[in-house]
């Protein structure tokens, strides 16, 4: 009985970005902390805001708004940093506000179509249709994988740019 409910439900941390509501699997959320001073890191990928001190650990913080091509996340009182663990990496993501933790029945989650998201559906696990609103569910492991690739790509770009100079 209990097993059934567990298998068919997902517990999600909901947060807001702009006007949309997103959900993160609670298992990957380590903790939620208030905004704090962020030390900027030179030449990091554009969406990396910098690093913070999480009780003695230095962890990177990314602006998930920038990552998805929204406007930069506005600085507001409700801003939070959601600290997540993906594989061996701990990082913080800045969100507008964390609203609640809910259980979502698995059957209410639909896969996303490319048309809705203009080709970025890689980072999305699905969309949960709840009576009152739609929740976009993030697939974090994929998000980070792409990050690593992106870092590689920009590094390669730089190499390419430097090359012509030395050929001359």
């Amino acid at each position: 009985m209990a097993k059934d409910t567990l298998a068919n439900e997902k517990q999600m941390v909901l947060f807001e970005l702009g006007t949309e509501t997103y959900g993160l699997d609670i298992a990957s959320v380590h903790e939620i902390i208030r905004m704090q001073p962020i030390t900027k890191v030179p030449k990091a990928p554009f969406y990396v805001e910098g690093v913070i001190n999480l009780r003695g650990r230095v962890i990177p913080v990314i602006d998930i708004g920038k990552r998805f091509g929204f406007e930069k996340t506005e600085e507001a009182k409700n801003n939070r940093i959601v600290v997540i663990n993906i594989k061996d990496t701990t990082l913080g993501i800045i969100v507008d506000a964390v609203t609640e933790v809910i259980r979502i029945p698995a059957e209410s989650i639909d896969p996303v179509s490319d048309i809705v998201t203009s080709g970025q559906s890689d980072y999305l696990q699905g969309i949960a249709k709840l009576p009152e609103k739609m929740i976009i569910i993030l697939a974090l492991d994929k998000l980070l994988m792409k990050d690593a690739e992106l870092v590689d790509m920009t590094a390669q770009d730089e190499d390419v740019k430097q090359e012509p100079a030395s050929i001359k």
């Binding site: 890191v41 990091a44 990928p45 990396v48 990177p60 990082l91 590094a155």
Partner: peptide, 9 residues
């Protein structure tokens, strides 16, 4: 620092 912050910076 985490590797994905970028290396050789």
């Amino acid at each position: 620092l985490d590797h994905f912050i970028g290396e050789s910076n």
